[in-house]
């Protein structure tokens, strides 16, 4: 009888352990990760008031780098930051107030239109909204 009880005890411990080993991953699984959306459709990128005038910032919009510019009048612009020529990352030039690609001197205006140099196409535009001083960019593709 003693032996039976002993085995039952071990069975209980092993059973609990097994249950734990199965339940723990499941519980962890159920906690959603920080960005539970498989596709980024909008992104908060910081405070409008913290963003300097006539400056820019590159943010990661999912897999796409996006350049966000606050022009000297305080208007916000967001454009895909990959140059349409050879996919280099573009930058904002404060002096010329234009978007510029260092690889082959491609130049775009603040709305992303290709002005000079090799880029064949304009940069894709992103919508920018400011809600409660929070800058939010949104993809315009459906």
């Amino acid at each position: 009888m003693n032996r039976r009880k002993f085995i039952n005890g071990i069975m209980g411990i092993g059973g609990l352990g097994t249950l734990g080993a199965a339940v723990y991953p499941v519980l962890e699984y159920l906690v959603p990760p920080e960005s539970a959306e498989p596709n980024v459709s909008s992104l908060k990128i910081g405070k409008f008031s913290d963003f300097e005038m006539n400056s820019s910032k590159i943010v990661k919009f999912g897999r796409i780098p996006v350049i966000v510019v606050k022009d000297e009048k305080g208007m916000m612009h967001a454009l895909a930051a990959t140059c349409t020529h050879l996919d280099c990352i573009v930058q904002y030039r404060k002096d010329a107030k234009q978007i510029y690609c260092a690889c082959h001197n491609g130049v775009y205006d603040i709305k992303g239109r290709n002005l000079s140099g090799p880029p064949p196409k304009p940069l894709e535009q992103y919508a920018v909204k400011i809600i409660d001083d929070e800058i939010i960019i949104k993809s315009q593709k459906s």
């Binding site: 499941v26 699984y29 906690v31 539970a36």
Partner: peptide, 15 residues
């Protein structure tokens, strides 16, 4: 979403 499951969700790859 499957990529999200296997890369971001904890134990998602296991499930």
């Amino acid at each position: 979403s499957v990529r999200l499951i296997v890369t971001k969700v904890k134990f998602g790859w296991l499930i």
